[in-house]
Design a protein around this nucleic acid. Sequence first.
DNA 1: CCAATAACTAAACGATTGTTTAGTTATTTA
DNA 2: TAAATAACTAAACAATCGTTTAGTTATTGG
Lengths: 187, 187
Amino acid sequence: MARRKQYNEQEVLEKAMRLFWRNGYENTSMQMLESEMGINKFSIYASFGSKHGLFKQTLKNYKKNRKNIFDKLQNSTKGVDAIKDFFYDSVDVCYEEGNVKGCLITNTYNEFSFIDDEVIKTDILQFMENLKILFIEKLKTDKTKDEDTVLKQANFLLLAKHGLAAATRVNNNKEIADYIELTFKNI
Amino acid sequence: MARRKQYNEQEVLEKAMRLFWRNGYENTSMQMLESEMGINKFSIYASFGSKHGLFKQTLKNYKKNRKNIFDKLQNSTKGVDAIKDFFYDSVDVCYEEGNVKGCLITNTYNEFSFIDDEVIKTDILQFMENLKILFIEKLKTDKTKDEDTVLKQANFLLLAKHGLAAATRVNNNKEIADYIELTFKNI
DNA sequence: CCAATAACTAAACGATTGTTTAGTTATTTA
DNA sequence: TAAATAACTAAACAATCGTTTAGTTATTGG
């Protein structure tokens, strides 16, 4: 054995995540990552392999961070209102995190729709597919909805979530609340 | 006088627009622009000043191209249904253009929210503000809506349009129609 | 205590970015 | 027809990108 790492991989990964979150993937350079993470390029490559690898782990970490609000949605018995709560929770997380911009998943989805990178794309699409399944599950608890309605509404809510994520990047809390209320008015 | 330009500035600008539309600003290189526009870098700089200048003119050209559907919205007497038609028209334009991705304004809005470029940002925000004013105008034709409701619904529709633009980048026509119908169900 | 070795620093890598420039070609008008 | 000049080609520009490598430092276990 020899010298030990002078940094904590989880800690620097969190810092990298927040930088990617603020600036997107392409607009985050290795130089920026160096100073934000507080470690040398060599160390980044030693721990995460590449910029791409670091970003992948960043996404993984993001999902882990959000696990609690997904679990809350999954375990709730409130039906459609559980989804509405989830929308509010998603917004809250963004503002709690402070300096970030919107939702990292949605940001990545937007950015990579212009880039050939099936690895990241598959990752994101799977994430959204899982969310849709959760929506469907909650919508189905309302027995007055037929299957077709449930699917349509699930698709609608997935896109509404997308609009919401865009909104959390610029709008204030009040406008966002209005948006959520109107989204669920007829669901 | 001397030699004349061997290309038509309007024609090559349209080609540049479609390339930016497909790939975004940062992911479009001067090399790609050269081959897509069919002219040399020198000629691009002679006609448009810089990559940034070319992109600005691209946005201007995009607005001009869409003037007809904005005019249709403005001149319509159908109230809220005019906005709904506008949503469908926006989708149609995307699909008619073929190889492009979503709405150039929304794409640019998303991409530049991560970049310090007040020129482009101001341009885009003004565009969205104008659209919101149009929405308000149409919503106001329904005299049963109070002022507060009109503003809330206009904000909602602006964000819904954002979600729609995201959808036209991946989803099929049927899902998009469902989304539009649900959006307007309670307006 | 010292040889082994992992983690560090810092410089350099080749590739690509947007932009400029020097030199050539073609067309215009006097 | 010939001088003038704008538009062309193609090469080079400096800066930055992600990545690698050579050399140094520090800490470990025998």
